[in-house]
């Protein structure tokens, strides 16, 4: 699986996005599906930097991405303290605009953009996030 390691800094999000987009394009995904993969990975990496490591430049993110018979698989590994995804609430858009909160939007987008999102947390081997997107008939 093609793998690249990045320092957990926001300035690296564009390079990570380019890396996964290129593979999604090669898999034959259409523009909307390539965008979905890029968005899910951006949200995941932002969460790792912000909530996992607690800031920029405090750890690495290993990004592996490959074409599978069914579509594309992305694996992100980090060595942060990790978190419980079940603790993150889904955003609520039924409230008035003034009461809207940003929390949870990233994880929600990841789950909506990808077909499968799995977290595993291991203090020794690192946290592994596996996201899969299936190639549909339209692409």
């Amino acid at each position: 699986m093609p793998t690249r390691k990045f320092i957990g800094r926001y300035e690296n999000l564009a390079a990570i996005g380019k890396f996964v987009s290129r593979i999604a394009q090669k898999a034959g995904f259409d523009a909307a599906q390539v965008y979905a993969v890029q968005l899910a990975v951006d949200e995941a990496c932002t969460n790792i930097i912000e909530h996992g490591y607690g800031g920029e430049g405090l750890g690495e993110i290993e990004c592996a991405c490959d074409i599978t018979p069914g579509g594309v698989t992305v694996q992100l590994r980090d060595w942060s303290a990790g978190f419980n995804p079940e603790d993150i609430p889904s955003p609520n858009y039924t409230v008035p605009l003034e009461q809207l909160k940003p929390r949870g939007a990233g994880l929600y987008l990841m789950r909506q953009m990808m077909d499968d999102v799995q977290f595993s947390f291991d203090p020794v081997r690192g946290n592994l996030l596996t996201m899969k997107k299936r190639k549909t008939d339209s692409s």
Binding site: A32, V34, A36, P91, A105
Partner: peptide, 16 residues
């Protein structure tokens, strides 16, 4: 852009 519209909807932007 067309490919962004779904995420704008999912992130609540289209509601407001």
């Amino acid at each position: 852009a067309e490919e962004m519209k779904e995420s704008l909807d999912l992130a609540g932007v289209k509601h407001f």
